[in-house]
Simulated assay, not measured.
Amino acid sequence: MPIDAREILDNLTRAVVAIDDERRIVRMNAAAESLLHVSSRQALGEPLMQFLPALQVLDEAIEQAFSQAASYTEREMRLTLGPDRTITVDCAITPLETVNVLLLEFEQLDRHLRISRENRLIAQNQAIRELIRGLAHEIKNPLGGLRGAAQLLESELSDEDQREYTRIIISEADRLRTLVNGLLGPDSRIEHAPTNLHEVLEHVRSLAVVEAPAGVEIRRDYDPSIPVTRAASDQLIQALLNLVRNALQALGETGTITLQTRTQRRFTIGDRQHRLVARIDVVDDGPGITPAMQDQIFYPMVTGRAEGSGIGLPIAQNLVNQHGGLIECTSEPGHTVFTVWLPLEDA
């Protein structure tokens, strides 16, 4: 069987960029695209330092590697790839004399720290799952009463416009009942079906717009290339709605929430690597979450608000985890991001 060097390169987990003697990019594997947040189609043929200014710190080493045909290694090098993204990498520069090409290899150290943090979040989520099931039992009774009251009210109303409100109550009660039944199932799962993530987000956005104060704007920034995937849409709606409501409560009367989607290839969640994942960001420009609170927000009954219940984020984490995904949070004053990672293997 012939060996396809390109396929081998693309299946490496280490990021590799190849440049020629004119310092132009001639090859970039999938891991490098993911690490550097660039497309190989756009990069090919471009001058390395102009296309990736963050790599200017390697300029002298690259010149020495070409002139002396010598390898070079730099450990724990920090690369600033944008205003909000700095990574730490080990870098190896290796000349290929026969073809006059230089290989730049990058191993992201942040990745190992992130995997450790994700494993901790997954273990934490498993520990609180039983508590959530107990809460689900308590929700079922008042939910049934709510639905019944809405049905009785609907039968007394003659105005069709007013009946529309009761239908919304009944529809949302049915969705929540399905959600609760999923939480109470033998393995806390409900049936997955083909799901458009942007339809899910639009449903969440329509509910949030009704709840949002006049001074809060909810923006969209969608990646149309995200494919339809198999998921439990009710579970995703509830998880994302919890995140958006959390942002609304953080903002108060004014501010901006952005719903953003992107895809990422060869991404690891916990200790499992996925070929393709969806990244859904719920971004707000509120006051932020204190560093001490960020490590605890996914625990039940932990909240920074006196009126908060402290169960919204743990429930959201549980629901996303049932899809093989994970929710992470980064926050500083003026910029808080809750990121939902969802595998797209079935897409």
Rank of each mutant, 00 (worst) to 15 (best):
1 M>I: 13
4 D>F: 15
7 E>P: 04
8 I>E: 01
8 I>L: 15
18 A>F: 09
24 R>P: 03
24 R>V: 08
25 I>R: 02
36 L>T: 05
38 V>H: 11
38 V>N: 07
41 R>N: 15
42 Q>L: 11
43 A>P: 00
47 P>I: 03
60 E>K: 15
61 A>N: 04
62 I>R: 10
70 A>W: 07
72 Y>H: 06
72 Y>T: 14
74 E>P: 09
78 R>Y: 05
79 L>S: 07
79 L>P: 03
79 L>M: 04
80 T>S: 08
81 L>C: 07
82 G>Q: 07
88 T>V: 07
89 V>T: 12
90 D>E: 01
91 C>F: 07
91 C>M: 06
92 A>N: 05
96 L>C: 06
101 V>G: 06
108 Q>F: 02
110 D>S: 00
115 I>A: 09
116 S>Q: 13
120 R>H: 12
121 L>A: 11
125 N>T: 07
127 A>T: 15
133 R>P: 09
136 A>M: 00
137 H>C: 07
138 E>Y: 12
139 I>P: 00
141 N>Y: 05
143 L>Q: 02
145 G>T: 01
146 L>S: 00
148 G>P: 02
149 A>V: 01
151 Q>D: 00
156 E>W: 08
156 E>C: 10
157 L>T: 01
159 D>I: 03
159 D>V: 05
160 E>N: 12
172 E>P: 01
175 R>G: 04
176 L>I: 06
177 R>W: 06
179 L>S: 00
180 V>A: 03
182 G>M: 04
183 L>P: 02
193 A>G: 04
194 P>H: 01
198 H>A: 06
199 E>Y: 13
202 E>A: 09
203 H>D: 11
208 A>M: 05
213 P>N: 06
218 I>F: 03
219 R>N: 03
220 R>S: 00
228 V>I: 11
228 V>C: 05
237 I>W: 03
238 Q>T: 08
239 A>D: 05
241 L>Q: 06
242 N>Q: 02
243 L>I: 06
250 A>L: 15
256 T>Q: 10
261 T>P: 01
266 R>L: 15
285 D>A: 05
286 G>H: 06
292 A>C: 03
293 M>R: 13
294 Q>N: 09
298 F>C: 08
298 F>W: 08
300 P>K: 02
311 I>E: 04
319 L>W: 10
328 E>M: 14
328 E>F: 14
329 C>H: 07
333 P>C: 10
335 H>Q: 15
336 T>D: 09
